[in-house]
Design a protein around this nucleic acid. Structure first.
Length: 1155
RNA sequence: GGGCGUGUAGCUCAGUUGGUUAGAGCGCAGCCCUGAUAAGGCUGAGGUCCCAAGUUCGAAUCUUGGCACGCCCA
């Protein structure tokens, strides 16, 4: 009998705080971590441990964080925490991506300006200073989110891409590439906003597509034969007539068939794709008679007269050259009669070729539209430009065709263009050009067509044009194979990224266009001599200082003097760095080129730039770099494929590929799916289809959010954000475990259970209350087996970066613990004798389960885990060797000796039988509180029957029956269905399978089973063949016959005996009485251990019988000193009805505890 | 137009090497339990596994072709 004692003094475990919510408890944990420097201690504890290297992909802090960022940061936190507990040292350096166009756009919005010109007018210097400040606009929100989510990362020592040391690291890497000849200048065709004078990024272009009608023209290019114009023309197609003056080639597909046709009306010859002859003939409503055919490749090299002569004729060439001379520009190679030397190629029959106006091959030519011959103006199309580059490659250096372009960056024709369009906006000239062609008899056909065309998102009426810009490139194509080889070794999750999106992207690699004609970015560290044109890359600021006649530093010094607040890091940025010059070998001044670089290069350089490493032979930078390279683990969302994933792999392959074994710079990468809003649309602030993370934290807590991310789906599926699902994490997981903890604490305090005498981590404490698991009862051994089975699963899954299935294991275990172990153990916890072995075993078992689960869930839900740890271990056992935080613990290991697979299987069977029994009760409308005489269990597979018979008491209790029997006359209750074991028999029987199934179905199941028992096999006649089946090769299913209170699963039938005796009814009433008395206790505010007196006055004979017969049972269950059948004086009666039996109930508290 | 991915219950999602009764949670309906109690549990209804063809004794699963959606690129 529990003795009354003041709980407050003796309580081992701090009482459960029922008032607080999970979010409130989390806030307290955050304080605890901060005050005690727990994160730092986890690192210190692993100072000498092997490293687990994590790279933080830098987010930009100039936008508000949203739930998608929470997912990324949760996953980034999970694995480092896990690996730390598993014994690794995992440094987590935070980082911020700070450069780039988005920052400039933000600042422009603030200033109310748009174009590059506006920025220049505003002043680059103040603009840059604003950019630098803007980067930190939402810094606080980001830091708060990071902390509140429990993402442990070193924010104090975060790397920042605009910091001087970072910029210099990037410079160093670029200098390596430059010195190895991998950095070169060339043209890049960009989407150009001519009116604004700026290129647009892919994202911006994508925003501005509109459907418009554009001309589609078919122009005749007369063919040359031996330098003479013939009567046969190519029919060349284009949708941008304004690019015709810049024509350089006509492209055909080498494998497509072309026809030479005769125009019935004019008699002239035309060349076009055979497939399109009919189409074109219909369009012009004239017959086209095929004269001959050939493949595209036979046309290659044929020369033609371009539609405009400004580049083609001598007069045009001279005019052009005089323009160039005035501008001091390099001479053109073009001109209709000019040839260039071909590159050395033993297979070529010629040594030189015509520079332009030739037919060339191109795979992108189709016969889906047009004429099958495509006009090429390399200045105004990316694919066209590629054609030019391919042509240039055929010629000796400096001998090939140069780019023809008669349009200025402002989108107007230059003086090199035909006179009638000079100085006009190109798009306005389409009509005049068409008219001119028509007048000169070169227009074959002209029509309109609808297509999507991009416009500027900042000026809706301005169409964009493709336009060549000088740009710096990195020769990444030289490393394509090396990158692919490196990629092949990376463990991508999901796997399809490797050969899919990322692999495909690498295979179509083009040189990295590095430079940007912008302001806020890492300046390209290349200086050019103004006299001799020599170029030189610089590796860091020191190097510049050491240059001869280094000058121009005063611009920065003055700015700093004027405004001492300016961060020194700006000194390596525009415009200050642009002022810095030094002397060339030739004596003239070297000036920096004007461009900054693509900010993706910044992020891709982080493996070394985060440490400021720039090739130092020794010192801290090199040490940090080498010990933290390559990364074991990174994770970002799918949109980083062409972003951070690529920039890292590309840079690492180029810089370190020669002596670093693949993979690098990361080994494992979880590619997260994109997160959609509640409505399935893209998350957007304006649509309000998500709730801000901070509100989620306040409502449900960080653990709920984390658990939702980890346990609801594999992280790479694109995830539909669901607030309800986050909310559900609480009752489904957090609260369920919390309730087990709460249950434990209540009883452990009542019974004074003290775990402290057992030293930690030692399996055989010398405590007399403790005995080894092997000596405990079945239920205890079962849950410990489940625990260790779960640990094995979780560790195995987590080592494979599979958090989803790890969580499934944890969920299953917590369910087993809560809904079977605790429930089945209630009696033991409630037992009177405090030293009862079973009771002590139960405490030790549940305690171990809770402590181990706490450690097991620590990486997933770090707050709940910490909370449980503090209440169950750190505080009760303070002063012992117990770690002060769960996060300082080793991750628990599975003890395989405790795992008992057979026991597991058997207990599953018990649970199945119980479930079926309850099912049967439901269908028979018999409440569980009403005891029944017996259940009969029929098993298709008798393997575990003997064991079950021994443990029948569990089933009896669960189902509230007096006896559990394993029926010896199953035919009475069940029908048998015998099926072939498809998996085993598939190969053996093949086509006979369905017949065997049929034959088995037709036979008498019971008979087959009898045969199987006696002979160990059955023989069937199928299609004249005799088929022998062994025990393994059949599967027996049971179903309950009609007329019984029964329920069945595949291999089990449970039948209830439904007859009720007076005795059983009385016992049922007694249990009802217990319930109503307990209700009354609760109403009276009794503590668990308060004692009472009970009086029940009733007319009902059955109730009277129950009261007298079960007096002891009633008293014991309700902690009553006595159960009287008379009224208690001075006690108010309660009228109670149990079914049809009424009673007056008197309950009096006789001993109350004093707290 | 090309590439990659996704399509399973009203909703959100699982589904191991193909094996014959396709699962979970939520929601819904009905019920139970009551000293873990502003909890907990059980049962049920609900599915042309996007469509079609193929391979196979057997397909949610493999192949091909569609359709729809998403992302990336043009």
């Amino acid at each position: 009998m529990p003795t009354p004692f003041p709980l407050s003094q003796l309580a081992m475990f701090p009482p459960v705080d029922k008032e607080k919510s999970f979010p409130q408890r989390e806030e307290a944990i955050l304080d605890f971590w901060k005050e005690n420097g727990i994160y730092e201690k986890t690192l210190a504890a692993r100072a000498e441990a092997p490293p687990f290297v994590f790279y933080e992909g830098p987010p930009t802090a100039n936008g508000m964080p949203h739930p998608g960022h929470c997912l990324t940061r949760s996953i980034k936190d999970l694995f480092p925490r896990y690996k730390t507990m598993r014994g690794y040292r995992c440094e987590r350096k935070a980082g911020w991506d700070t450069h780039g166009l988005p920052v400039e756009v933000e600042v422009c919005k603030e200033l109310g300006i748009h174009s590059k010109e506006d920025i220049e007018n505003y002043g680059i210097e103040p603009f840059i200073q604003l950019c630098q400040k803007s980067v930190w606009r939402y810094m606080q929100e980001w830091e708060r989110l990071t902390e509140r989510l429990g993402f442990w990362v070193n924010l104090e020592e975060a790397y920042v891409t605009y910091h001087q040391s970072y910029v210099e690291s990037v410079w160093w890497s670029l200098k390596q590439l430059f010195d190895r000849g991998l950095l070169y200048q060339g043209h890049k065709i960009v989407w150009w906003w001519a009116q604004g004078g700026t290129a647009l990024s892919a994202g911006e272009v994508g925003q501005g597509y509109r459907e418009v009608a554009d001309p589609s023209v078919f122009v005749k290019f007369p063919l040359l034969e031996d330098g003479q114009v013939t009567k046969t023309s190519l029919v060349v197609w284009t949708t941008t007539p304004w690019t015709l003056p810049s024509n350089q080639f006509a492209a055909v597909h080498p494998e497509i068939e072309y026809s030479t046709v005769e125009d019935a009306e004019t008699g002239e010859g035309l060349v076009l794709a055979s497939d399109l002859v009919e189409t074109l003939a219909t369009k012009i409503k004239r017959d086209l008679k095929v004269v001959s055919t050939c493949l595209g490749k036979e046309l290659i090299g044929r020369r033609y007269v371009p539609p405009f002569d400004t580049y083609y004729t001598l007069a045009g060439a001279q005019h052009r050259q005089s323009l160039r001379d005035q501008a001091g520009d390099v001479p053109y190679k073009l001109g209709g009669a000019q040839r260039g030397k071909l590159a050395d190629n033993p297979e070529a029959s010629e040594t030189e070729d015509w520079l332009a106006w030739r037919v060339v091959a191109a795979d992108f030519v189709t016969t889906e539209s047009g004429s099958g011959i495509v006009h090429q103006a390399p200045a105004f199309g990316e694919v066209d430009y590629d054609v030019l580059v391919a042509e240039q490659a055929r010629f000796a250096t400096g001998e090939g065709p140069t780019l023809v372009n008669c349009v200025a960056p402002d989108g107007k024709f230059t003086d090199e263009a035909p006179e009638f369009v000079r100085g006009r906006w190109v798009k306005d000239c389409d009509k005049d050009i068409n008219r001119d062609l028509k007048e000169r008899g070169l227009m074959f056909h002209q029509e309109q067509y609808l297509h999507d065309y991009p416009f500027c998102w900042r000026a809706e009426e301005d169409p964009l044009i493709q336009y060549p810009r000088e740009s710096w490139f990195i020769k990444t194509t030289e490393f394509k194979d090396a990158m692919l080889a490196n990629n092949a070794e990376i463990n991508w999750l999901p796997e399809h990224i490797k050969g899919g999106r990322f692999g495909k992207f690498l295979e179509s690699n083009v040189d990295w266009a590095l430079s940007r004609e912008r302001f806020w970015g890492t300046p390209l560290p290349v200086w050019v001599c103004e006299a001799c044109g020599r170029k030189e890359a610089v590796g860091d600021f020191e190097e510049i200082l050491a240059k001869p006649q280094a000058a121009g530093f005063e611009v920065w010094d003055e700015a700093k003097a004027k405004n001492p607040e300016l961060p020194d890091d700006l000194r390596v940025h525009k415009p200050y760095i642009d002022a810095v010059t030094f002397s060339c070998e030739c004596g003239a001044t070297m000036q920096r080129v004007t461009e900054v670089i693509d900010c993706w290069y910044d992020s891709g350089a982080m493996p070394f730039a985060q440490w400021g490493y720039r090739g130092q032979e020794d010192g801290p930078e090199r040490e940090r770099f080498e010990s933290q390279f390559p990364a074991d683990f990174i994770s970002e969302a799918l949109d980083q494929t062409r972003g951070w994933f690529y920039s890292q792999v590309a840079i690492s392959t180029m810089l370190f590929g020669d002596n670093q074994p693949a993979p690098h710079p990361f080994k494992n990468c979880i590619v997260l799916g994109l997160m959609l809003g509640e409505d399935g649309q893209k998350m957007s602030k304006s649509k309000r289809n998500y709730r801000a993370p901070s509100e989620i934290f306040d409502l449900y807590g960080a653990d709920a959010l984390r658990w939702y991310f980890f346990a609801n789906q594999p992280p790479w599926t694109s995830i539909r954000y669901s607030e309800q699902a986050i909310k559900d994490s609480v009752p489904e997981f957090l609260l369920r475990l919390w309730n087990v903890y709460s249950f434990f604490t209540i009883y452990a305090n009542i019974d004074g259970f003290e775990p402290q005498s057992a030293s930690f981590g030692v399996k055989t404490p010398s405590d007399e209350t403790f005995r080894p698991a092997a000596e405990r009862g079945e239920l205890d051994r079962w849950i410990l087996s489940e625990l260790h089975r779960t640990l094995a699963i979780v560790v195995e899954r987590m080592d494979e970066y599979d958090n989803y299935n790890a969580c499934q294991g944890i969920i299953a275990f917590v369910d087993a613990l809560s809904n079977w172990y605790v429930r089945r153990s209630r009696d033991r916890f409630w037992a009177k004798d405090k030293q009862d072995r079973g009771k002590l075993d139960a405490y030790w078992t549940l305690y171990e389960c809770l402590i181990t689960t706490t450690k097991m869930i620590a990486p997933f839900t770090p707050f709940l885990a910490e909370n449980l740890w503090q209440q169950l271990s750190a505080q009760p056992l303070a002063g012992s060797a117990v770690p002060e935080s769960v996060h300082l613990c080793e991750y628990p290991e599975s003890d395989t000796t405790v795992v008992d697979a057979q026991l597991s299987e058997r207990m599953d069977l018990v649970r199945l039988i119980s479930s079926l029994g309850r099912n049967a009760r439901t269908s028979a409308e018999l409440k569980v509180r009403q005891p029944l005489a017996k259940v009969e269990v029929i098993l298709a597979d008798p393997t575990h029957q003997a064991w079950l018979a021994e443990h029948a008491n569990v089933i009896a209790e669960e189902l509230n029956v007096k006896a559990v029997e394993f029926s010896d006359q199953p035919e009475k209750y069940v029908d048998y269905q015998v099926l072939p074991n498809f998996k085993l028999l598939g190969k053996k029987l093949g086509k006979l399978m369905p017949k065997v199934k049929q034959a088995l179905g037709k036979s008498d199941g019971a008979e087959l089973l009898t045969l199987m028992k006696s002979d160990g096999k059955v023989t069937l006649e199928v299609e004249g063949e005799s088929v022998e089946l062994t025990d393994d090769e059949i599967e027996v299913r049971l179903s309950a016959k009609e007329g019984w209170a029964a329920a069945n699963d595949r291999g089990v039938v449970v039948v209830l005996a439904t007859e009720l005796t007076d005795e059983l009814v009385a016992e049922g009433l007694a249990r009802d009485l217990v319930r109503v008395i307990q209700d009354r206790r609760k109403e009276l505010g009794c503590e668990f251990t308060d004692r009472i007196e009970v009086g029940a006055v009733t007319e009902s004979k059955p109730l009277q019988q129950a009261l007298s017969e079960f007096q002891d049972y009633l008293a014991g269950e309700t902690l009553s000193n006595s159960i009287l059948t008379t009224a208690l004086p001075d006690v108010e009666a309660t009228d109670i009805k149990i079914g049809e039996h009424a009673t007056k109930l008197f309950v009096k508290v006789v001993s109350r505890h004093s707290h």
